[in-house]
Each structure stands twice: as C-alpha cells, then as structure tokens.
Nucleic acid binder design. Structure first.
Lengths: 207, 207
DNA sequence: CTTGACGGGAAACGCCCGTTCTCTAGACTC
DNA sequence: GAGTCTAGAGAACGGGCGTTTCCCGTCAAG
C-alpha cells in the first residue's frame, strides 16, 4: 500500500504538518499564520496539507484536539502517583513548570476563543477542553477528602484559569505558586456550609 | 475655528469612530474587523479616521485605553460607597452584571493579548490594565481588614481573571457568584502565616 | 524500460486588507 | 457671491490570504 518513502510508515507528512501548525499557531496566533508558512515549516507541499486536512479550519481543529489530549495526558501522568491533596497541588506545580518554558504563550484554547469569534467548531473544542480539565479537577478534589469536592473543583478551576491568564498577560511566572498557595488555603479552611446558596457547576449540569 | 457642522462641537467624528471601533473590535475581534467596516459603522470617511488615528494599530490602542479608563471608573464608582469586605465582594457583583450582558465577549484585554501576538503597544496596554486592576484590588483588600492585603489582592486577581475566562470560554454566567464565594472563603480564613514563603506580587515590584 | 501514482514547488485565482489618493458637495469667511 | 476649507464617497494600489491547479522529478510495479 504505502510506498517506503523517505518517511516512516503511516503518513508522517500529516504529523509534520500538525507539528508545524502547533508550533506556529501557538506561538504566533492562528490568524497571523498562513497556510504557506505551515507548509514551508513542515517541508511538505500544499497538496499534501489539503489532502490530510481539508481546510485551515480543519487543521486548527486537529491542532486543538491533539493539544487537548496531550495536555490532559501529561497532567494525569503527573498526578497518577500522588495521593490526597497532593494531587491538587501537583496541578499548580505543573502550571509553574509550564509558565517557565520559554515557548509559553498562554492557553491555546483561551487564545483561540478570543481570536476566532467566528469559528464555532474551534470554540466548541475550547469549551470541551475546559470541561475535561474541570472533570479532572473534580477527581482530584474528591481525592483531597474535603466535604464539598465539586465546589472546591470550581474554585480550583478559577485559580487555574486566573494563573494562566496572569502568567501570560502580565508576564508573571510566579502566578502558579500564588495560585498554589491560594488552593492550599481553600482546601485548608473551606467551609462548605458557607456556600450552600451557591450552586456548583456540577449541580447545574445535572439539572 | 471648528465650523458648526451637523455634529456637536469638539470632534464628534473621532468619538463616533472610537464608538464604532469599540463595538466591532470587542464583539468580533480586532483582526476580523476591517477599517472599512469601522468607517461604515461610524458614518465617516476613511480620511477622517486616518486624520484622528494615524493607523489601525493606533485606533486599537485608543480603543483599549478608553475601555480601560471606563472599566476602572465604573468599578470604582460601584465600590465608593461601600466599606470593608463589601468593597471586595462588590467587584464580583459587578462581574456578575457584566457577564449577564448580552454583548459580553470576555475581557477585551485578554482577547487582544491572545490575538495580537505581534503588536507590543496593545499588549503593553493590556498589561497596564491588569496592573491597574490589581492596584484597585489591593486598595479594596486593605479596606477588608485582613492581615496580608497584598496576598489577598493577588488571590482575588486570580479569581477575577478566572471568572472572566470561565464566563467567556465556557459560557458560564454563574462564574461570578462562584468566584465571589471563593473570595469570601479566602477572606474568612486567610492565614497569612501559611503563605510567608510565597512572595506577593507587590513585593516583587518593589525589588 | 515503461508506466503511473505520489508529492514538493510554484503559479494562478479571487478575495480582503490597510493605506493613500482623487473627486465632489457643502458650509463658513469675507 | 467667490473663495476656501472640511469631510464623505470611493477608486487605486500593493500585499497577503486560503484554495485550486498545473508542472515536474522520484520511485515502485509490471
């Protein structure tokens, strides 16, 4: 079937395109990067790109989907061997490592949401990504043995999003450690009785 | 000097341009809105726009600067007549009202930061906006009579940013009330002794 | 060696953008 | 009423975009 090209089996051309798209879209923004730049960086022809991804919008969607999967996988791997509230704190340690990377350019999903007001598919993927992250935080919150894990997860989500935005917009690498200390404070002294009037997002979803 | 045009004195043409730019840039994104669309919406000619704002980048900067001023003014007005921790909670009440507006499209400064990776001036204005908001939260935190107002302000800032992003990306209007309850919890049981190892951002700035 | 599929390179197409320039109509000054 | 200035309408220009199409060279199959 597939000829033994100078490339590995499967279609590594598609991989190279997606790698280049990820690098360029994330660092420069989706709208600022043209198809020509992607194919030049990937070392493929335009025909190859359009054979695997039928349009730029589809390429953006594939970029976001793979990023979502890898983000969640890596985060879960960092939390897998931890117990209790350490699982929660590990999320913020991971954020700190991320913010310190020189290529850090904020959250790709937030950026795309703010950039592509017109592309509903991309915005849907961004929403799904946030919901997956929220679910991951809910599992961690349950492991932290607090009385109201869903409320804690909602608050942790706010801290995570706030830390990412602060690290990016303000260029503040220490946002993660501050969010970590805030998360610890919330776990230390969360009094769920204080928040009975505030519906948790998980409760909303069940309605 | 100025002839008695069908417009009010001062240059109301510049105002109309800025109004149109704000409406369009905020709702559709800066890159998705062309100059032609702005002048059509403002009912002026291209020459008028370029006479008052010498380029699209300058127009974007003027748009962000006016939005920053109005945002801070309105927020301060809502907090002026309140005392103590009510000043802090009023911030999140204001967020709730904002999120409920049908035109709500997230934080313009976050959107611009994610959209215009190439425009340093716009990103600088976004950073200044966040720093102004942080200073406002610091004043409110001092009024809340907590032991470490700067740390509290840092944490409130994370909650505010997280709420805005969550309300926008996830379409969750209730993010503000959840952030409000988290802020109340942090004010209730903040134990500054727990956070001595975490430098506050205000401390960073003084170094 | 011939054939044919594959894929990179690049031209071409139609469209939109930011910016500049020209034309024209109206209103104020004198 | 003639002159002058303002400002809107729109053409023009150079450039970039997403997408399609064509031209080749390369390499496996027969």
């Amino acid at each position: 079937m597939t000829p033994l090209s100078p490339e590995t089996p499967d279609s590594s051309a598609a991989q190279r395109v997606l790698d280049a798209a990820e690098r360029l879209f994330y660092s420069r923004g989706v709208q600022a990067v043209g198809i020509d730049m992607v194919v030049a960086d990937a070392g493929v022809g335009l025909k190859t790109l359009y054979a695997h991804y039928r349009s730029k919008d589809r390429l953006v969607e594939a970029y976001l989907r793979r990023l979502n999967q890898r983000f969640l996988d890596r985060l879960q791997a960092r939390m897998a061997h931890l117990q209790g509230r350490d699982q929660v704190l590990a999320v913020f340690d991971a954020l700190g490592d991320w913010f310190a990377e020189p290529e850090f350019s904020g959250c790709a999903f937030i950026n795309v949401a703010g950039e592509l007001h017109t592309n509903p598919a991309a915005r849907a993927i961004a929403r799904e990504h946030k919901q997956s992250l929220r679910a991951l935080l809910q599992r961690a919150a349950r492991a932290a043995a607090v009385t109201d894990p869903d409320t804690l997860a909602d608050r942790l989500m706010l801290l995570v999003e706030g830390a990412v935005v602060t690290a990016y917009v303000e260029g503040d690498e220490h946002a993660a450690v501050r969010a970590r200390s805030a998360a610890a404070a919330l776990m230390d002294c969360a009094r769920p009785a204080h928040c009975d009037d505030v519906p948790s997002r998980a409760a909303d979803r069940l309605q």
